[in-house]
Amino acid sequence: MPKLHVRVQRQRPDTQARYDHFDVEVPDDANVIDVIEACWRQDQNLMYRHACHHASCGTCAVRVDGKEVLPCIVPLAACKPGDMTIEPLRNFPVVGDLVVDVSAFFQRQAAAGMVITRDAEETIDGHPFEPSELLQPDGKLERRHYNRFENCVECGICLSACPTLSATDGFFGPAGLAAVHRAWEKTTDETERAALLDLADREGGVWQCHGAFECSEACPQDFDPAGAIMDLRRALIRRKVGALFGR
């Protein structure tokens, strides 16, 4: 059982941030979430978010030694031994300790309108799809593609990593713009597509990105929000140039 000295940022909305120190012992194969839980067992006033423990709900995101991670899937073996500093995400208002206020974030996600499931692009062994025969509620068979939850778990890590957001709250943010991109890719309805591009084109939209690509670097799910932003820019430029020539 490795012993660990943990510094955890403690804060309430009306107080200055400080660090509390915990000495914990966790199993060899523990993940960082188990370390946080061990601290909580010592002090139940410690506020942190968690639910699924397998990188699907996206609630637990924090900064470990300065880097944004989902602690539920980071093994201790991947961290430096002996001690660890745990802090809340940046660029979010702090509710308490490691808990940040995600309301503004989810309001933007809702505005972006991405549906969280999609058709699977390829089979498990990497082949292109043949629609499968799946059961309908009435027991009849229907040929359709398997569906998948989107890879983005809406954990907020990309917002914390984004240098633009550390300078302004006005920016829609990588996850939100990636969601706009996804929604735009998925729909074939031309008015809806135009409205989504308008959303991306507004102040605070894709043009406010400074292209540091930190969002895509930090994403625990390989979602590439920066790529999505640049893709939207290209679509917007095409539309604007097209408009110049009366198209």
């Binding site: 979010f92 208002p93 503004a104 309001q107 006005g170 507004r202 605070g204 939209g205």
Partner: peptide, 19 residues
């Protein structure tokens, strides 16, 4: 829904963008 929200991450650490 506008792009701007009333919910702000204050106080910010100045110069975080250069960190």
């Amino acid at each position: 829904m506008s792009l701007h929200s009333t919910n702000r991450a204050r106080p910010r650490k100045p110069l975080q963008w250069i960190d």
